[in-house]
Amino acid sequence: MITAFARSKVNLFLHVTGKRNDGYHLLESLVVFPEWGDRITVKKGKSITLEVTGPFSQLIGSTEENLAFKAAHLLKREGGSNEGARIVLEKNLPVAAGIGGGSADAAAVLKSLNVLWNIGFSNNRLGQIGLALGADVPVCLYGKPAMMSGIGEQISGLREFPKFNILLVNPGISASTGDVFSQLTISEKITSSDDFSGRTARELFIGLAAMRNDLEAPALEVAPVIDAVLSSIKEQKGCHLARMSGSGATCFGLFEEEEAAEMAARDILERHPDWWVQAAAVDP
Results as ranks from 00 to 15, higher is better:
A6Y: 10
D179M: 11
T49V: 05
A68K: 12
L230R: 01
E35P: 03
P284C: 13
V282F: 05
L241F: 09
E65S: 13
K44S: 15
A104L: 06
K234G: 07
S245L: 07
I173C: 03
D38W: 06
L215R: 10
R199H: 14
S47H: 14
F69K: 13
F205N: 01
P273K: 05
S176E: 10
T3V: 15
L131F: 12
N123K: 13
W117D: 11
N213Q: 11
A223E: 13
E188F: 13
A104T: 11
F33P: 04
G102N: 08
Y142C: 00
E78Q: 07
F205V: 00
E270F: 13
L158H: 04
M211N: 09
K189M: 14
L93D: 07
S187P: 04
I48S: 00
W275T: 04
K237N: 15
Y142M: 00
L204P: 05
A223I: 15
S57T: 04
D195H: 08
L241T: 06
I2A: 08
L208V: 07
N170L: 09
L254D: 05
G120I: 10
V229I: 14
C239V: 12
R243C: 05
H25N: 02
E235A: 10
A4T: 08
I268H: 04
P224L: 11
I268Y: 03
L269G: 05
H15D: 12
I151W: 00
I155G: 00
K43H: 13
R266C: 13
L113Y: 06
L30S: 09
A135S: 14
S176R: 06
N165M: 08
G98T: 08
R271F: 08
C251P: 05
F205S: 05
A68C: 12
A71S: 12
G130F: 07
L220M: 15
G101Q: 02
E221G: 10
V277F: 01
D227T: 15
I206N: 10
K234M: 10
K76R: 12
A217P: 11
N82E: 15
V32H: 01
L158P: 07
L126K: 12
G150R: 01
G143P: 03
S62F: 10
E51P: 00
Q128C: 12
E153S: 06
E258M: 10
L12P: 01
A107M: 00
K9A: 03
I2Q: 09
E78P: 02
E256L: 13
L110F: 01
N118F: 04
E259P: 10
T185Q: 11
